[in-house]
Design a binder for these strands. Structure first.
Lengths: 142, 142
DNA sequence: CGGAACTGTAGTCACGACGGCTACGGAATG
DNA sequence: CATTCCGTAGCCGTCGTGACTACAGTTCCG
C-alpha cells in the first residue's frame, strides 16, 4: 500500500524553482541540499540528467554551483518527469505464466493501458512550468 | 529509475479476468497462483481487499475457492486500483525544510498536481471493465 | 463424525531500491 | 598553489515486496 518512495522528481522541481527565484545567481549543492532537506550528493545525482538535457548548468570551482540554463517559462514539468522517471510503468506489471493465454492477453492490455496513463500524466505535467511554481511561491509569500 | 515494483494490481486484474472466464466455477488459490505465476498465499493477500469490497467471494472447504461476486461488466478497473493502491502519491513527495518558503509552496503545488494526476488515472481505468479484458482474451485466442 | 480440502493469517526470509554519508579525484577561481 | 566546488564510486541502514512455511479455522464428503 505504498508506492513511489522516489523523491527525485519532487527534489528536482524544488531545486529548479529555487534556482528560478535567484535571478542567475548560482547556488552550491550544499545550499540546495539544505533547502530541499536532502544530502548534497543526492542533489548532484538528481540534477545530473537535467544538466545532460540542457535544463541547468553546473560549474566547479570558487563561485561555481548550479544555475538554470533556460527561462523558467521554458521548463515544463513533463520534461523533468521524463528525464528522471524514464519510461517506467505507472501501473505495475508482473510476469504471468507464458503458457497461460489469459495471462498473456491481460498483460498486453495492461501495457497498453499503462502507456495511455503515462501519456495522461505527461500531458498534465506539460501544462505546468517552473515559472508557474515560482509565481505560486511569490503569491504565497506576499 | 524504477518505480512501481508493486504487482498487486496486475495480479488482481489477472485473477479477475481468469475468474470471469470460468462461468461461476470456483477456482482455488493454487490454480490462480499457477496462472498468475505467483504464490498462493500472495493470491489470498491480494484478493482480500477485493473480497472486502464485495467484488469476489471466497469459500473454504472442499470445492471451495474464489468466484466473482459481480458480473464482469460491473467491475471497472479503477475500483481495483483504488482498493489496492489506496491514495498513495503517484508523483513522489519529499519533506522539504519547513522553514523554506519555496519548499512549502512547491510541495503544495505538487500535492495538488498529484491529485489531478491520480484522478486522471482512475478516470482512464474507469472506462475499462473485466468484461473488456475477457473479450480481448477471447479475440486473441480465437 | 472424522478426514480431506480449502481459506486466513502470522512469521521468517532474500532481494532490491532508496537515500545518507564518506572519500577522493578533477576543474575552476583568486 | 590553495581554495572551493562538482563528479562519482562505494558502503551502509532502512523499507517495501513477494516467496515460503506453518498452523488454525471452516466446509464438505464418505
Amino acid at each position: 500500500m505504498s508506492r513511489s518512495t522516489n523523491t527525485r522528481f519532487a527534489v528536482a522541481v524544488h531545486v529548479l524553482t529555487y534556482l528560478a527565484g535567484l535571478d542567475d545567481r548560482a547556488a552550491g549543492s550544499e545550499e540546495l541540499a539544505r533547502s530541499a532537506n536532502v544530502n548534497p550528493v543526492y542533489i548532484r545525482q538528481v540534477m545530473g540528467p537535467l544538466r545532460g538535457a540542457g535544463l541547468v548548468r553546473s560549474k566547479p570551482g570558487v563561485h561555481g554551483g548550479w544555475a538554470l540554463a533556460l527561462l523558467p517559462h521554458d521548463i515544463p514539468l513533463d520534461r523533468v518527469w521524463t528525464l528522471l522517471q524514464g519510461d517506467d510503468p505507472v501501473l505495475g506489471l508482473h510476469g504471468p505464466d507464458p503458457g497461460c493465454a489469459t495471462g498473456r492477453s491481460v498483460q498486453r492490455s495492461l501495457i497498453d493501458l499503462d502507456r495511455e496513463v503515462a501519456d495522461a500524466i505527461t500531458a498534465r505535467l506539460h501544462a505546468v512550468t517552473v515559472a508557474d511554481l515560482l509565481s505560486a511561491v511569490r503569491e504565497g509569500t506576499s
